[in-house]
Nucleic acid binder design. Structure first.
Lengths: 261, 261
DNA sequence: TCATTAACAATCAAATATGCGCAAGCTGGA
DNA sequence: TCCAGCTTGCGCATATTTGATTGTTAATGA
């Protein structure tokens, strides 16, 4: 087990329990207490936690893990979904992306696809996003033009929200909006956990000519706190092959074009 | 197998597993570990992955702050300047930060200043920035509230510029603007290499109650392409002790309060 | 207040990853 | 064909990580 994996594990325990104990974790991970202390000191220097005698307590990140850790869940499905979604976007498109692990994959896929069919040195795709991690990852790839919506940053999701973001979004138009959602229901529509995110996503969808929702099958058929939009506002859903046929049919009945990657 | 094929393979493994291990991949692809290391270093320079001991992990999120200690030139000076500049900012301040290595150090210093620790759960400092790297680094640390100006991202500097950024900036006021500059002249004022950056920096300065310029001594006394503002618009200059006394005096004569860290 | 005990910091040695120099092999052009 | 430039693999010196040891510090309770 490498140090990065240990750090992820420590932060996962911290997110779950709110605290870690040196000896307990050392036994659980099969390393010495000295190593755990060094790890905790390291993370403490990065302001990721607060050191206590005998362990550490949650400091900066209390509810959520860095995206890096979450990316591990359903990774192959997300990757396939993302590739399929990116394939729907034509060269030259202006694409809105919100935050989340799946949309981050879409961004990566888009960037590597743009690598292949770049034309004349000009960026062939414009990505408009409110997700800091996506912007940060794509900004070094010269093939994609990156536009960032302003706003207040949410530590949990790296998303920018708020009135400032609204203002910017109202000034631009999108060809496509590719939205990752927390839940998607044939009757209820698309949902996010956070009302601020939902608001931005709703606005992004309304500014776009075509709305594509990406969601692995575990998200289908449920609801979450804040509604983004009804299914009538969604043009295409990209999901994986594990989605139940009956659920897929209900989305199709609701007028959504379903793609199973 | 060509190097391009290997890179694709490495990135594919990274997308699937979230990490790669040097020895495992070397065996799988039938090349030496040295080659894999060189490949990973190469991809790491392209920001496609983050190098770890024994392999690499996906994504831009790292638990390290390598720049703080490895930032190429004038690192100790920049660090001292940044600490001194951050010390000028009182709790509760709304602070504008532009991009650059020195301002990134200021951001880190702000994030770890103990007396600014959040009081009553609320972050006690608000950072307004157009630099993606600063926003991305600070967003996980809850000590500061992060507001990002929108705009088009410049790959060279990670800065957001353009009309969208202008629009957001016009809607807010700052207590302080902390600006890193490319050149600073007692008569000419502050300069940036890029006219887009200069425009945003100028606007940021005009929205701030107090303008603090951070610049190591190598930047003093020269000029660059695009002017940000005259010295009359600058309240404080924070620089290092290597600044020539005569130059410092000329800044003081121009009405700038000079701090040498 | 003082003794006891657990946690800690400092240090060392072993294991292992890494970086560098160099030679061999390959590729593309003159 | 030959050469220049590049990539690859190997060996060795170096750096980093880890676990153990030992002395020090801080919390607990009588």
């Amino acid at each position: 087990m490498s140090s990065h994996e240990r750090w992820n594990e420590l932060l996962a325990i911290l997110a779950r329990d709110g605290k870690v104990e040196v000896d307990a974790v050392a036994a659980e991970l099969g390393v010495s207490a000295a190593t755990i202390r060094r790890d905790l000191d390291h993370l403490s220097r990065q302001q990721m936690l607060t050191r206590t005698r005998g362990g550490a307590v949650a400091g900066a990140i209390s509810y959520d893990l860095p995206l890096q850790y979450k990316a591990a869940r359903h990774a192959p499905e997300k990757h396939r979904i993302a590739t399929a979604a990116a394939a729907l976007l034509p060269p030259g498109a202006i694409v809105g992306l919100n935050g989340g692990t799946t949309t981050t994959e879409v961004a990566r896929s888009l960037a590597s696809r743009a690598d292949l069919d770049r034309q004349g040195g000009e960026p062939s795709v414009t990505v408009v996003t409110n997700a800091l991690n996506i912007a940060n990852e794509l900004v070094v790839r010269r093939h994609v033009k990156i536009v960032v919506i302003g706003g207040v940053a949410l530590p949990e999701s790296y998303e920018l929200i708020g009135p400032l973001a609204d203002g910017v979004l109202r000034e631009i138009s999108l060809d496509f909006a590719v939205l990752g959602v927390d839940a998607l229901d044939p009757e209820g529509g698309a949902f996010a956990h956070h009302e601020g995110e939902a608001g931005i996503n709703r606005l992004m969808a309304s500014r776009a000519g075509r709305v594509i929702v990406v969601a692995d099958s575990s998200k289908l058929g449920g609801r979450a706190f804040a509604r983004i939009c009804p299914c009538s506002a969604i043009d295409t859903l990209v999901t994986d092959r594990d989605a139940p046929a009956e659920t897929v049919q209900r989305f199709r009945d609701a007028g959504v074009d379903v793609v199973q990657a």
